[in-house]
């Protein structure tokens, strides 16, 4: 997918970055990083956010619950957190591909199904 911010708005291959642009809009940093990494930056930002919340939640469950942990709950919680992060990225067109947004929504559906079908759900 061609990023409209990279190629149309600036009429160059990569977005331009200077202090004036950053001062006007802080999202320009992400847009620039996204352009020079061929649109991989936003995707990896989302994936790393998901992994950080997921592993952090699992470790917290280990600490508080001992051996009794539920992986699906961590998965659902991190999917929710990632959805919020993706919504923030989505407020600027062209940073995150909408397909990844739909994948996160699908992950939430799977997380809810995994939670309601586990043994101690209710």
């Amino acid at each position: 997918m061609i990023n409209p911010i990279c190629d149309v708005a600036n009429e160059t291959r990569y977005a331009l970055l200077n202090s004036t642009r950053v001062k006007e809009n802080l999202a320009e940093i992400i847009i620039y990083a996204n352009c020079v990494t061929n649109h991989w930056f936003a995707l990896f930002l989302v994936i790393s956010f998901f992994l950080a919340v997921f592993i952090g939640s699992l470790l917290m469950q280990f600490r508080f619950g001992g051996k009794f942990i539920r992986v699906e709950t961590s998965f659902l919680a991190s999917s929710f957190a990632t959805l919020g992060f993706a919504i923030i990225l989505e407020t600027y067109s062209g940073i995150l591909n909408p397909s990844y947004f739909v994948i996160i929504l699908g992950m939430i559906i799977l997380g809810i199904i995994a939670n309601i079908t586990s043994d101690d759900a209710f």
């Binding site: 959805l83 919504i87 989505e90 407020t91 600027y92 067109s93 909408p98 947004f101 929504l105």
Partner: peptide, 15 residues
């Protein structure tokens, strides 16, 4: 929630 939030913040979103 997603739809209403994006309608306010970025109506031209591809979503």
């Amino acid at each position: 929630f997603v739809g209403k939030y994006l309608e306010v913040t970025n109506p031209s979103s591809q979503l």
